[in-house]
Amino acid sequence: MVSINDYHSDYPNHWCPGCGNFGILEAMKAALAALELPPEKILIVSGIGQAAKTPHFLECNYFHSLHGRALPIATGAKIANHHMTVLVNTGDGDCYGEGGNHFMHAIRRNIDVTVLAHNNRVYGLTKGQASPTSMEGMQTKIQPGGVIMGAFNPLAVALSLGAGFVARGFSSDGDQLRDLIQAGIRHRGFALIDIMQPCVSFNQVNTHKWYKDRIAPIEENHDETDRISAVRLSLGTDDRIPTGIYYRRESPSYTDRIDKLKDKPLTDHRYRPELLKALLTDGYP
């Protein structure tokens, strides 16, 4: 039995009181315990930002990497040892800004990692600048006239690129988020869970109340295997922010499609110089 307490970390937390990250952290622990995944069996890769500090605050293997680069690190690690359960804690700036290109191509690879994108629509670590998901017109110290770019729509982008698991959660709905994270980890292939969260220090537009007024679970008649419906949902037709699974359909993941990984992970091979004998004498005939 794995319990939530097994994930307890003694390392003191760095987040502001009231931060949405706390809800995400608790939902993660609950999901991992429910899946019977002990701390030593999981690898969490993160980039840089408040979200990326998450693995310090729960027991696990982790690689707290560079801003934007969590997905390539996770990809390399997963290819080396595809038996690991790999999660990525990242933020809207980390994943959709600095790491935007990696986000697109990790989806195309369908690498089997579960991405938790802590989306508070603002830069927290650097104190309040606009993020890729900041709403148009949002004023910040750096954008005093308001953001003049349209907001990045991660779900629509992921769906258009063929992501096999696309969901949206809310940091204050722990039970739903736990279930989404569990489903995301179970999904074989790339899973994106974009998590709406308030930033109590720097986002005075998308406050907790603002979300409460708009968040609504996806209607029950939504067919999560229908990609077009999912895209329509992701584009939004009114003020509501639907949460839950937008789209889910499994297809072979990147490591499933590499024949030489079928037998065992790359990490499990022995060095065998005899395999090189014929190659080492090779040249132009």
């Binding site: 390399g76 080396a80 040892n81 990490t267």
Partner: peptide
């Protein structure tokens, strides 16, 4: 997808043990 990804994939794989 780019050299940033290339070197970071290599770092991820090396970290994992190859």
């Amino acid at each position: 997808e780019d050299e940033l990804a290339a070197v970071n994939m290599v770092i991820g794989a090396a970290f994992a043990g190859v």
